[in-house]
Design a protein around this nucleic acid. Structure first.
Lengths: 342, 342
DNA sequence: CCTTGGCACTCCACCCCGTTGAGTGCCAGT
DNA sequence: ACTGGCACTCAACGGGGTGGAGTGCCAAGG
């Protein structure tokens, strides 16, 4: 049994047609309807034979005897991998992306606008991960005395993120000492990658006199904490209302899906498994109970080539993959360009 | 026709019973079932008369002839205003609030934990507004030179919020001048209410020499912009999955509700109309198409007595008002206490 | 005058069942 | 290798019958 035999050209055409029709109508597609809508030059009976073979191989499935066929996850996978091309956005959509994202004032705003934009053009649930700190570099560390013995530590990164922490020094520290520590700290870490900061500061407090060593140690500990901070892995979401529009695509309710989406951990895991380029995960591939029945189209993004985070859309497995892939790619590219400008 | 006549004691008892039963079972309640479940010492026939009167007055409603009665929005309103008391939380719930909120590390974290907590104990959609800037005071303004001619402005408020902006000075500014401006700026605005800052800085740039006046003007303009910033009015939400659990309480789908919830503007308006204390808005009172069918229980919160923002829960009109009111009150109070400690 | 038991009536929810139509698998013929 | 024909299957739909919960009204009793 050769590969040619198992997946000949016409069989693939049939699968492609089934996916397209099912995505368009949400109705199992039968042999007759299929030959009517697509001009394949053969009769329904022939199609039926092809369908029987496709079903044997697990690409399509019959909800019940005497019903039409529906693609399986495996069928969608084949469609995405070999039977479809990314559909580029229309000029109007490109223009909309530009004008909508160009107005952003800071990082929060970029992320907020991106997620809403993505939800709007795809009509699905959009998910955007905040640019990760660990991949970015320190732009500046500021120490702000709040009281004699309490200091606010502000960490500013070149991706535009700002993290603040309050440090209790245990006792009064003169302003001039704070200024000196600030200067030496910045000399040490500015322009360094966050991932390198822990090693760079390993013995930082040791370089100070006994009277300062304690609070500087507390300070560096807090800074390191901020550097590896997990909340950095924040995620924003928009378009959950779209789930309700597609509620018929889910077994009986959207409840488990919404529930899964509220668990940021779940989404972070999904992104974690994604490649830096365009990734499609279909149905059960998501390995989360609430998300069988959903697919995710995701892409890494960042300043230029550096991937610092992911963004994507999530919807029923019955989704317009080429369109989603086009939209996600375009938005990821444009956000990357915006980040690079900052 | 006296007031006593229109709303005598027993009629109110009947209304209360109807609300309670309907909330518990989501089924129209009839006269017979009502006398069985509550020991009112009269017969179903008598109840029927009371019900007819209540219906005439618009407190209850019959889905169709020969069905039981369902409370109207007006009925719920009367129930909330006169027939129920806030139900205090159990000791276990109080303990859960404490242990869950005490771990928070900064303002973002407090808000994030609060909203998840509220969603969990009420099993509804929880909404929390970020503490508003305008009601709070300046703790510190920091100027961080990024390049010779660009400065990062960081505004820190006593509610713990941090806003940052980048200012382009048009030309190089010596570090020492920046330090001087920083000192004079802080002398002017620290500990002042944000709402007073614009007047305080009205002629600030005028006090500098011609060579600095331009960039200081740009700086103050940016600062004022941050002070009146609208994004401060951020809202976070959790528990939208609970809507799906109550989907039978909505006409045909939760779509319009989810849609309304995604419009932050809508939620801000709701909060805007709320009182500083506990507020309940029922069904059509929300004056938003998607939110007829939902009620909101909200409360102001802040450090001590100062109300700086609102939080609340939103669910079907058929909700456990006393319980929701208890939970919202307790959480608002505890968050207020946490904010006061910071 | 208020309350109550009785009674006739209404109408939704449910079940059963026959019909319809789309779709299938198989087979014999080209 | 493809096609037309054929018998079969099964979900979806609609109609009719029934049960039950609930009502409004009324006349009798405290």
């Amino acid at each position: 049994m050769t590969t040619e035999n198992r997946l000949d050209e016409r069989k693939l055409d049939v699968l492609r047609a089934i996916v397209q029709d099912y995505v368009a109508t949400r109705e199992p597609v039968g042999s007759k309807a299929l030959v009517e809508r697509h001009n394949i030059g053969v009769s329904p009976a022939t199609i039926r034979n092809e369908m029987a073979a496709l079903e044997d191989e697990g690409y399509i499935h019959q909800p019940h005897t005497s019903a039409g066929r529906v693609p399986t996850d495996k069928g969608y996978r084949l469609f995405v991998d070999r039977l479809s091309q990314v559909k580029p956005l229309s000029a109007a959509e490109r223009r909309a992306i530009h004008s909508f994202l160009d107005g952003a004032v800071d990082l929060d705003d970029v992320v907020a606008r991106t997620v809403r934009l993505l939800a709007q053009i795809t009509q699905q649930v959009a998910v955007v991960q905040y640019p990760s700190l660990t991949r970015s570099a320190v732009r500046h560390v500021e120490l702000v005395p709040l009281t004699a013995s309490r200091i606010m530590l502000v960490l500013i990164t070149d991706t535009g993120r700002v993290e603040q922490r309050i440090v209790d020094c245990g006792g009064p520290v003169p302003e001039s000492t704070v200024a000196e520590v600030r200067a030496r700290l910045n000399a040490e870490v500015v322009a360094q990658h966050l991932s390198d900061v822990p090693t760079l500061l390993a013995d930082f407090s040791g370089r100070f006199g006994a009277e300062d060593r304690t609070w500087v140690a507390a300070l560096t500990a807090t800074l390191l904490d901020a550097v590896v901070e997990q909340r950095e892995e924040r995620i924003v979401m928009a378009g959950t209302a779209n789930l309700a529009r597609f509620r018929h695509d889910f077994p009986d309710t959207v409840y488990p899906v919404l529930e899964a989406l509220e668990e940021q951990v779940v989404l972070l895991r999904l992104f974690g498994e994604a490649q830096s380029g365009l990734t499609v995960r279909i149905g059960h591939e998501n390995a989360h109970e609430g998300l069988v029945g959903t697919s995710m189209v995701a892409s890494g993004y960042g300043r230029g080539e550096d991937v610092v985070a992911h963004l994507g859309v999530l919807g029923p497995t019955r989704m317009d993959y080429p369109g989603m892939m086009g939209a996600v790619t375009a938005v990821a590219a444009y956000v990357g360009r915006i980040l690079a400008e900052t």
